[in-house]
Design a protein around this nucleic acid. Structure first.
Length: 881
RNA sequence: GGGCGGUUAGCUCAGCUGGGAGAGCGCCUCCCUUACAAGGAGGAGGUCGGCAGUUCGAACCUGCCACCGCCCACCA
């Protein structure tokens, strides 16, 4: 006897199967097969901590795709790995050090790097075990890390080639600087937030005049670095000052009054102080007008020696002091409250300081052109499609990318600076001498690369590039990328540019953009709100398959996902339902029964199948087709939802209930069909709920070692018979109407009631053939078919489609309630009748609408008429209360 | 300042190519019927944000408006 517990126990099952799958090498991609490849590279999680719900969603979706394609016979590869995440990881470790009262400088670079590597190991082990707990079928033999030996080689190769092609340059420019992280960051790493501040109006004396030029600024401390005042060339108010000079207060520096169209005449006084050293606009203006740059704020956010009396002060302190000093001198005209955007460091929220420094940049325009083209011509397709516009807009307006970081954790820039002539020699390996002056004293650049530089290579660096490997040949370009909208620019765009540049082909054919996983009320999950749901905790409590299914069914493309615990409980129940549906069949099955497609085909041809068999087989084919279609277009929410409904509410609720009598009577046909449908359903469900389906599949008759490698079912459209499905629907509606009538009259569900039916001739034949089902599922006794219903005795009555029924009672019912029920039903039908009449009376509708729509309306109108007549009849037939 | 998305049942959301408004959870009634109480049967609940237009027909297409959210942008 088969021993299956009454409820599904995920823990036991999950432990068992994952290690077996992995040990047997089922996850491995191959290079020695003629099968078409389907590959995905994981968006590598940062080694900063543990996985959150977003990762769980992302991984689940990828695993669904990979498992599906694997079953479809593709040579699949899902390549896992992690990201060294430069600045983010360095910050994590620095925080740990701070707990010990230390800074990274106390350790020194080498010891600090060692410390980060130690942490990396811990975080990575943790992350990888979490990915395994999610059931992900990654090829662990190909696991990569953005900072491992091979990938570092790829990074150097790319850097050198870009440099040689003139696409990387070093120079002194204004960059975004984080004074806390003490590094330059890219434009993307600055997050702007509306902030309430002030607008200081400052009087700049005009040289050789009593006049003042009033400028407005939100950052008075930067005035110390002003090297001009700008007005609009068409601004009549200032024409008399053309070519003039202003005297910078506090510094007593003479600065020119320049004219430039970047000035907005409407804003403030129409005169702008120009600080090329600390403002992006002013920097540009400074270059146009060849203005000197005075750097008054340093890398720590303190005032430099060039800030005169304010040197050494923190920038905010300096702001207050400058304002106070101006006030004292009567040069502060007014201070207004002012709202504006302030940029902060993405990693630490410190207010970013624009300052001039020497950095390395990628000239991205040439790269962006190809990357733009590839999306326009459909080589890479975004799902949902509207993201391609967001991508294109960004690519079109792209600025050069600052790639150097003054950090310790990351790929050292492969450039060696000459101690003698200052030249940078860029090379794949350490050069013996300076490439310009030949000096033997080149020292490697201490800066590291932006972490996205290495992740931008991920789709090919992980496959062995720059070597020409079988892996590259087989799996590049990858098939799909699954990722969040938040890293389209950071990551997707860079991969597109670099993939096209170095592989001559897009890195992926499809980009599936997922939304944000939110808390059950649609709020963003965050530590401060305390509403974080830990994937591991819910897996522990509800089982991996329930968590996966919840994520899958919620994942409408591009939409955010409120992760609902109550919903997950519902899907855990679904897992249990699958378990018990299978359990029922297994407990009642003959061992050795064969339920392969050919067996069912023979039964079909011999005509041994009954209506319910043909119906469920037809529905299975339809669901199979739909699942395929939906997965193909990344409608994972629809695919999973359809399967849910089919398995539970069609297979279990109807089919299994319909055949119980046959099963008890030893009908092997029913057993075969049921087993077949179950086995196919498990395969269809496997990508979504891998553990449960494997566990059950192993107990069913089949060939093969694992459901993972069993073929994904292919629909047989010839098994879809619309007539069967239509008739079955009618039967279901009648049974439901009978149940409703009983329930609403509070009839004991166990009591069998004798029934009379009146219906059209054709329906009668059909119902007679299905009367056993009516008896079982609606708890009926004797059934009679009459031309008109008799009226004697106590009865409850009802109607479904064209069939009228009457159930004889031997107990009193609440006549008022029954009357009320009939009237409600009549009311609803009356509304339908009016609506349909209006439609059909409309000549235009009849003339212009497609024939099948008009026919459908006519048929419905007829049915509604019949039902109404019958209900009226019944209502009048009710005895007075 | 530009761009994108959303507004559907008490809650959270589906609704594909325009043609009888759906799911899960919650709520109410009945039932522990030997697959499953993490279950079964039934029920209540919606002017599909507003207005206008296109159409025989609009939750769906178009325009305007309102509110919410997101992204991008150098307004001192």
């Amino acid at each position: 006897m088969i021993n299956l517990p009454k409820t599904y126990d995920p823990k036991r099952v999950e432990r068992k199967w994952y290690s077996l799958w992995e040990e047997r090498g089922y996850f491995k991609g191959r290079t020695d097969t003629g099968k078409p490849a389907y590959s995905i590279v994981i968006p590598p999680p940062n080694v900063t901590g543990s996985l959150h719900m977003g990762h769980a969603l992302n991984c689940t979706l990828q695993d669904i795709l990979i498992r599906w394609k694997r079953m479809k016979g593709f040579n699949t590869l899902w390549l896992p790995g992690t990201d060294h995440a430069g600045i983010a990881t360095q910050n994590v470790v620095e925080r740990q050090l701070a707990q010990e009262g230390k800074t990274r400088k106390d350790l020194g670079r080498t010891a600090f790097e060692k410390r980060v590597w130690k942490w990396k190991k811990i975080a990575e082990d943790n992350i990888l075990s979490q990915i395994r707990k999610l059931g992900c079928s990654c090829d662990w033999s190909r696991q990569r890390f953005t900072f491992d030996e091979g990938l570092s080689r790829a990074v150097r190769e790319v850097f050198v080639r870009l440099y040689e092609d003139g696409l990387i340059y070093k120079g002194e420019y204004l960059v975004n600087w984080c004074p806390r992280c003490r590094t330059a960051i890219s434009d993307l790493e600055v997050e702007f937030a509306p902030t309430r501040g002030h607008l200081w109006h400052i009087r700049y004396p005009v040289k050789s005049s009593d006049e003042f030029l009033v400028v407005a600024t939100t950052r008075p401390e930067t005035m110390l670095g002003d090297t001009a005042v700008a007005v609009h060339p068409d601004d009549g108010r200032y024409h008399h000052l053309r070519g003039g000079t202003a005297v910078l207060p506090l510094m007593d520096r003479e600065i020119p009054i320049i004219e430039d169209t970047f000035v907005d005449r409407e804003f403030g006084t129409g005169a702008v102080k120009v600080t090329p050293g600390h403002d992006p606009n002013d920097f540009e203006a400074g270059r146009r007008h060849e203005l000197p740059i005075v750097k008054v704020i340093d890398e720590d956010g303190r005032m430099t020696a060039d800030a005169g009396a304010f040197a050494g002060l923190d920038r905010y302190r300096a702001r207050r002091r400058v304002a106070a000093e101006l006030e004292r001198l009567g040069l502060l005209e007014k201070v207004e409250s002012h709202g504006h955007n302030v940029g902060r460091c993405q990693r630490c929220s410190t207010v970013v300081e624009p300052l001039v420094s020497t950095q390395w940049f990628v000239r991205v325009k040439p790269l962006a052109r190809t990357a733009l083209q590839a999306v326009e011509d459909g080589s890479t397709v975004f799902v949902p499609a509207n993201y391609s516009k967001i991508y294109s807009d960004w690519m079109t307006n792209i600025h050069d990318w600052c790639i150097s970081r003054q950090l310790w954790w990351g790929h050292r820039i492969p450039a060696w600076n000459c101690e003698d002539c200052g030249h940078s020699t860029v090379a794949r390996t350490e050069p013996e001498s300076c490439s310009r002056c030949g000096s033997a004293r080149p020292v490697q650049e201490s800066d590291v690369l932006d972490t996205w530089f290495s992740s931008g290579l991920w789709p090919f660096s992980t496959l062995g590039w720059p070597d020409r490997t079988r892996d590259l040949e087989t799996f590049y370009p990858t098939s799909a990328l699954v990722t969040g909208f938040d890293i389209i620019f950071f990551w997707v765009a860079r991969m597109m540019m670099l993939g096209l540049r170095f592989r001559g082909d897009v890195p992926f054919g499809k980009v599936f953009i997922t939304g944000l996983v939110r808390d059950p009320h649609g709020q963003k999950m965050s530590k401060s709100k305390g509403n974080i749901i830990d994937p591991l905790e819910v897996i522990e409590e509800y089982g991996c398959d329930a968590v996966r299914f919840t994520l899958a069914v919620s994942a409408a493309p591009g939409a955010d996902i409120p992760f609902s615990i109550s919903r997950m409980a519902g899907y855990r129940a679904f897992c249990n339902k699958i378990w018990n549906g299978a359990r029922y069949l297994l407990l009642n099955l003959d061992q050795g029964l064969s339920a392969e497609e050919e067996d069912i085909g023979r039964l079909w041809e011999k005509g041994s199948l009954r209506l319910e068999d043909r119906w469920i087989l037809g529905r299975l084919q339809q669901i199979n087709q739909e699942t395929e279609r939906n997965l193909e277009r990344f409608f994972i929410h629809s695919a999973s939802n359809d399967l849910y409904h089919f398995f539970w509410h069609e297979f279990c609720d109807w089919y299994v209930e319909l055949i119980k009598g046959r099963i008890n009577g030893g009908d092997t046909v029913a057993a075969q069909v049921a087993t077949h449908v179950l086995e196919r359903s498990l395969r269809l469900l496997h990508p979504f709920v891998p553990f449960l389906t494997e566990e059950l599949w192993q107990r069913l008759p089949h060939s093969g070692d694992t459901i993972m490698l069993a073929p994904f079912p292919e629909a047989r459209p010839e098994w879809i018979d619309p007539d069967d499905i239509e008739r079955m629907t009618q039967l279901q509606e009648l049974i439901t109407a009978l149940r409703t009538a009983r329930a609403e009259n509070n009839i004991d569900p166990r009591r069998r009631l004798p029934a009379e039916f009146t219906c059209p001739f054709l329906t009668r034949g059909f119902l007679e053939s299905q009367s056993h089902h009516l008896k079982t599922l609606a708890q009926l006794g004797e059934i009679e078919f009459l031309d008109g219903l008799s009226r004697e005795g106590l009865r409850i009555t009802g109607v479904a489609n064209t069939t009228q029924f009457s159930l004889r009672l031997d107990q009193a019912i609440d006549l008022a309630a029954e009357k009320d029920r009939l009237q409600r039903q009549i009311g609803r039908l009356e509304e339908d009748r009016i609506r349909l009449d209006r439609k059909l009376d409309n000549e235009n509708f009849v003339r212009k609408a497609p024939a099948h729509i008009v026919d459908g309306a006519r048929r419905r109108r007829q049915d509604v008429g019949t039902q109404l007549n019958r209900l009226q009849d019944m209502l009048h037939g009710l005895p007075e209360p």
